[in-house]
């Protein structure tokens, strides 16, 4: 049962990702990305990470992608023009992708003590997750929060900067 669901949603995820690249209309690409995000959530669920799955749907598929579609709608972006693409990019790009993927694969395969994850009925409850997050991983967790805070402050500063110039120009 788990395997069937895994194959189904992994396939959906890949199909969404390929469709994302092939579509020429930005809104279709954004929708394919939503399909990718939601199928990833199902894969998390199959691995027993229920909170992560829900957070994936709420944050990525629900909030961030709404913002994407919002911007696409607001700018009313039109169709992308199909070009033949640059030959240099093609010559360098494909080998580069292969090299990067093989490097990542070797690193992961060589790494020791990663632990295993399997498709099973076992579920990591939200309490266990938060206990680890607030004891063992407290520092990385807080540092990430500060990082996000800095990004927010940066966005506000940029927005205010533009505003100041406009009032100065008047």
């Amino acid at each position: 049962m788990h395997l069937i669901l895994f194959v189904l949603f992994a396939g959906l995820c890949l199909a969404g990702a390929i469709n994302l690249l092939l579509q020429s209309h930005p809104i279709n690409s954004a929708l394919s990305l939503i399909v990718v995000m939601t199928s990833l959530a199902v894969l998390y669920l199959l691995l027993g990470a229920e909170f992560l799955a829900a957070a994936q749907v709420i944050v990525y598929a629900g909030a961030i992608m709404v913002l994407f579609t919002f911007v696409v709608m607001l700018l009313n972006a039109g169709r992308e023009e199909r070009t033949l693409g640059s030959r240099a990019a093609r010559a360098v790009g494909f080998p580069a992708v292969v090299v990067i993927l093989s490097v990542i694969a070797t690193v992961i395969l060589k790494a020791q003590g990663l632990g295993t994850a399997s498709l099973s009925d076992g579920i990591t409850s939200t309490e266990e997750l938060s206990a680890v997050l607030f004891t063992k991983l407290l520092l990385p967790f807080e540092v990430t929060s500060v990082l996000i805070l800095i990004a927010i402050l940066g966005a506000v500063a940029l927005a205010r900067h533009g505003d100041g110039e406009r009032t100065a120009g008047k």
Partner: peptide, 16 residues
């Protein structure tokens, strides 16, 4: 187990 989050998630998809 995460019923409340499921409801929030589905509502947030409904925006589309």
């Amino acid at each position: 187990n995460i019923g409340l989050l499921v409801i929030l998630g589905i509502t947030s998809i409904g925006v589309y």
